[in-house]
């Protein structure tokens, strides 16, 4: 991460719950996170991996057994350290008898907004999350998606420089998910830092600059998303116009083959790219694109979790 300034720094986070039955249970063994200022950082992991507990320790909702938690240099486990931090909990709940505006005013007072600021900020944030004109409706009439949007609005109260979002797309329809992605990108463009915990890998892949993958309470991988997903030494070739039966030499050269709507997608070793392109040309086909081979995040995630290393081995760090 070089000379970049860090917005969030978690070192050696560990949480042990003392259960009455069955002895102590360690849910977070050792998680460290370094999130650069002005970036979107994804925190990924299967259920029970320790993501939410790590976030709760960062926010001060859960007392860490050990570790340090800093947001813009301040200890975020203490209220004074959360001055520049906004948090969207997973499935945010509000006092349902309030209206959206009343809820924002309640939380706005807690971040020190004046009466005048509360009025203007509430309207601006409701518009920002797509709830313009809904401020006077009772929350009991809000859908889950609308409550999620309101949760984002409350996280943005007080103009935080660092925003932690726990499953922000949960409960949102496709349009809402797209809006959420755009909002995160807009926040980054404003120079804010977003730490995103999500199960929606497509969302993470679309917006995150770097990701940390947690499994079994430990960091299993960390790095730039391109570096994690690019398959070293392989390229992907997309071609059209090839016969159904591939020439023998071409078939022997390519590894994975996929066809869709008349298009062929081959995975080949980098050293074989030029020869493969020639063979496609000889077979009467047209090369449409040649790119570094890239996994989908879903594939990467599944493969990592299936490997022994993914079950709590040493972390893989790339780039």
């Amino acid at each position: 991460m070089g000379e970049e300034r860090l917005a969030i720094e978690v070192s050696g986070a560990r949480k042990v719950y003392r259960a009455r039955v069955g002895g102590p249970k360690t849910v977070v063994h050792d998680v460290s996170l370094r999130v650069a200022e002005g970036s979107i950082h994804g925190l990924l992991g299967p259920n029970g991996a320790g993501k939410t507990t790590t976030l709760k320790m960062l926010i001060g909702l859960v007392r860490p057994t050990s570790g340090t938690f800093r947001v813009e240099g301040r200890d975020s486990t203490r209220p004074e350290g959360r001055i520049r931090l906004g948090f969207l909990p997973e499935q945010p709940y509000f006092p349902m008898q309030l209206t959206a505006t009343e809820a924002l005013r309640l939380y706005g007072r807690l971040v020190g907004l004046s009466r005048a600021e509360l009025r203007t900020t509430s309207e601006r944030l409701l518009a920002l999350v797509g709830l313009e004109g809904r401020g006077h409706e009772a929350l009991s009439k809000f859908s889950r998606g609308m409550l999620q949007r309101l949760g984002v609005a409350q996280a943005l109260l007080g103009d935080p420089r660092v925003i932690v979002l726990d499953e922000p797309a949960s409960g949102l329809d496709p349009i809402g998910q797209r809006d959420m992605r755009n909002l995160m990108l807009a926040l980054r463009d404003e120079g804010r830092t977003v730490l995103l915990s999500s199960h929606q890998l497509s969302e993470v892949e679309a917006v995150c600059d770097r990701v940390t993958i947690v499994n079994g309470g430990r960091v299993a991988a960390e790095g730039h998303i391109d570096d994690l997903l690019n398959v070293a030494g392989h390229s992907s070739i997309r071609a059209r116009g090839l016969p159904e039966a591939l020439p023998a030499e071409l078939a022997a050269l390519v590894e994975d083959v996929a066809t869709s709507g008349g298009a062929w997608i081959f995975s080949v070793r980098d050293a074989s790219v030029r020869r493969t392109v020639d063979l496609i040309d000889d077979a009467g086909g047209t090369v449409v694109a040649v790119n570094p081979k890239r996994d989908s995040l879903e594939d990467y995630f599944a493969r990592m979790l299936a490997s022994p290393k993914g079950e709590g081995g040493s972390a893989r760090e790339v780039a």
Partner: peptide
């Protein structure tokens, strides 16, 4: 239980 406390205590509230 309803987790409404999260939105309060995640702010600068002791």
């Amino acid at each position: 239980e309803r987790r409404t406390v999260y939105s309060v205590l995640s702010k600068r509230v002791h």
